[in-house]
């Protein structure tokens, strides 16, 4: 998940509309990914889910797709 293995806490007291939207999207995608996993775990209790691998911290995200430069891509790989 871009938000990492845990959903980060933020101070949203000064957020404007766009920042609020970003935060909503961040929260939505965190649970969207979790939902797929949770449903599978509920549906198949006998399946051994060996690993769930997520970034240790949130990955940088941007307003438009394919906005990373090569340095960022390499950093995410590493």
């Amino acid at each position: 998940m871009t938000s990492g293995s845990d959903l980060e806490k933020v101070d949203a007291s000064g957020y404007t509309s766009l920042e609020m939207l970003y935060r909503f999207i961040e929260v939505h995608f965190y649970y969207s990914a979790m939902d797929g996993l949770l449903r599978a775990k509920f549906a198949y209790p006998n399946v051994n889910f060996r690993y769930v691998v997520t970034p240790s911290k949130s990955l940088q995200w941007n307003l438009t797709p394919f906005a990373y430069d090569k340095t960022t891509v390499d950093a995410i790989y590493d």
């Binding site: 998940m1 871009t2 938000s3 999207i25 961040e26 995608f29 969207s32 990914a33 996993l37 599978a40 889910f49 060996r50 690993y51 769930v52 691998v53 997520t54 970034p55 990955l59 995200w61 941007n62 307003l63 438009t64 797709p65 995410i76």
Partner: peptide
């Protein structure tokens, strides 16, 4: 814009 990168094994 927020893309997940999750792997489930």
């Amino acid at each position: 814009t927020i893309s997940s990168a999750v792997m489930i094994l």
